[in-house]
Design a protein around this nucleic acid. Structure first.
Length: 111
DNA sequence: GCGGTGACGAAGC
DNA sequence: AGCTTCGCCACCG
């Protein structure tokens, strides 16, 4: 199933996100060439639990820097707690200075 | 096989 | 500037 490869690609990119940085679903989707599959990236994240190695999904937020998936974590506060622990300030479920901590695979990885 | 859904994104109002 | 609607495409019942 080649689709599973897409999931693996997503996980791979997410693992490459350095601490203190965040990226968006659309950025990952675009990097993988599935710019129209931003939802698929989020869907892949939904399946990230139970895979190996663990995927730092807490570093993945939506285009607005909003922690849309915080409710999917065990303690729904774990996401912002992890980000804060890595130096990413979060307030009102959104990343502060988002553009400053934003990590674009297409840029950082310099395709 | 179909309908509903979703960790998104862009466009419309 | 904020909220609502539509589009996208894979997964589940």
């Amino acid at each position: 199933m080649p689709d599973k490869d897409f999931y693996d690609q997503v996980y791979q990119v997410v693992r490459l996100i350095p601490a203190g940085r965040v990226t968006s679903y659309g950025a990952i989707a675009a990097y993988l060439g599935a710019k129209s599959g931003s939802r698929m990236v989020g869907y892949a994240m939904n399946n990230c639990a139970g895979i190996e190695p663990p995927v730092p999904a807490h570093r993945v937020v939506n285009r607005n820097g909003l922690l849309t998936g915080k409710f999917h974590f065990h303690p729904n506060s774990l996401m912002e707690d992890m980000l804060a622990s890595e130096g990413v300030k979060v307030e009102d479920d959104k990343v502060i200075d988002f553009k400053n901590v934003y990590w674009a695979p297409s840029v950082e990885l310099a395709l």
